[in-house]
Design a protein around this nucleic acid. Structure first.
Lengths: 257, 257
DNA sequence: GAATGAAAATGATCTGCGTCAATGTTGGTT
DNA sequence: AACCAACATTGACGCAGATCATTTTCATTC
């Protein structure tokens, strides 16, 4: 898979307080391009993509990218920070659909209906790239590799959703949380961040909501895993002390290590 | 949405016992083309698609289209019958991922890895169209409408998976089964089949597995709904007696009616 | 650094659904 | 037509995790 290539991936954080801060880095310069662009574009092609990308001012925590009901115009890539996708049902209940980290693409679910049925908001200060969907269609018609890349992106998203389906349908609270943490760990390590020590960008409520568990259960499992020296939990700071054990209790095949 | 267009959709069943049976109908003749092809292709374009489609002999019940581990070569459309997609975990447990009815496309989840991690088998005598993925890439590069159509298909699949995610994470047994039946009902009615009376192509076990419920629970909910005159259940034959009530107890917005 | 509200943790209790066990039903095979 | 195996139904019981209630910790803001 191209995103496991040996091309190094760096994350460029930037300073929100500096108005001239480089939240406008081009795709060429962006350390994440290995994640969101196909491997084999020519410089010229990358440039074409680059020109269509709108780079808006970073979002503050809890600012929204789009709301349910908004017309669909663009897809988005996370540059830094984290995004929560969710929907609100008739009873006003929130349902967390997913979390997106730097280098990941979101908004794909609205293409068919041409309007957003879900919403997306920033979990922390977050920079995103906006790519007008019209341009995606246009460019991927011209650049064959880009089209193939889009298909792969979609396919990967579908597969990920299927995994979650299994998680929600069949797994215990402990397995769900274990798998969730392993998944985050893996995604962070892809981004050349620590696989064992990271900060959860989302609240316990969001985790519970996403995993189909009550907040209290999330808390309890965290403390239990801590008691068994699998995790070290300090608020949102997580350290995985025993990766292997975490894999075992998740009944997940342990990917690396 | 294009598949709610007023183009009539007919299902052409065919006789398996007749070796000359028309399981080789062209896309032009196929009553389902409104479902699996974009609305706005020219006759010439449809012809191009038609030439790439492999129409193999129908599958018998429980014959498989592909197995986990198979190399990914093609995507598939159901022409008649029904397909179950599932995966088997390390412990040998089956996880039902989804069901596909005539006019629906499956196999999209394998594009990224280029190999099937899930399997697909026929739930009953089933005819499928096989479209080599290479051709999909090639044709959708040439035919812009086809590319757009593919993106919509993907998007729709993602959205459907998200709906199931919510179902599995938050809903009770009754809500899950209600929503499942309503979903089938809606899909059948799109195919110009009865929305109120249909035959379940899958076993109770599969329903339970798919919805994250024990078989026994599925049975119990069926009998309870029957007792309350919401359904009439006779083996696999289902009749929805009170559509509105079914919507209510599913906490689903009632689409038609 | 005190005050306030939100988020997190912990304990007690309740319940929906899974599990186990037994029986009934169906459809495919000889 | 009779047989068998897979499938479906029904009942009894127990438990994982929801819910409710309370306390503790954390993050803001004045």
């Amino acid at each position: 898979m191209f995103w496991l290539s040996n091309r190094p991936i760096f994350v460029h954080p930037f300073d929100m307080s500096d108005p001239k801060s480089k939240f406008t880095v081009s795709c060429q310069e962006c350390g994440l391009n290995a994640l969101c662009l196909p491997y084999s574009l020519t410089l010229e092609e990358i440039d074409q993509v680059d020109q269509t990308v709108k780079r808006n001012k970073p979002l503050h925590r809890s600012e929204s990218v789009y709301q349910s009901g908004d017309r669909f115009t663009s897809i988005y890539a996370v540059r830094s920070g984290a995004i929560k996708a969710y929907s609100i049902d008739e009873e006003g209940e929130e349902h967390v659909i997913g979390f997106y980290l730097p280098g990941e693409i979101f908004g794909l679910d609205a293409i068919d209906a041409q309007s957003h049925l879900s919403a997306a908001k920033a979990l922390e200060t977050t920079a995103i790239c906006e790519i007008p969907y019209e341009q995606v269609g246009h460019l991927s018609g011209k650049i064959h590799n880009l089209q193939a890349h889009m298909y792969r992106l979609f396919s990967r998203e579908i597969r990920a959703d299927q995994q979650i389906q299994i998680l929600l349908g069949k797994k215990t609270a402990e397995e769900r949380i274990g798998a969730f943490l392993l998944n985050l760990s893996q995604r962070y390590s892809q981004r050349r961040l620590s696989a064992t020590k990271f900060r959860l960008p989302m609240a316990r409520t969001d985790i519970g909501n996403y995993l189909g568990l009550a907040v209290e259960t999330v808390s309890r499992v965290f403390t239990r895993l801590q008691k068994h020296h699998v995790l070290k939990v300090d608020g949102k700071e997580i350290e995985i002390l025993n990766h292997k054990k975490l894999c075992e209790l998740s009944h997940n095949e342990c990917p690396l290590l």
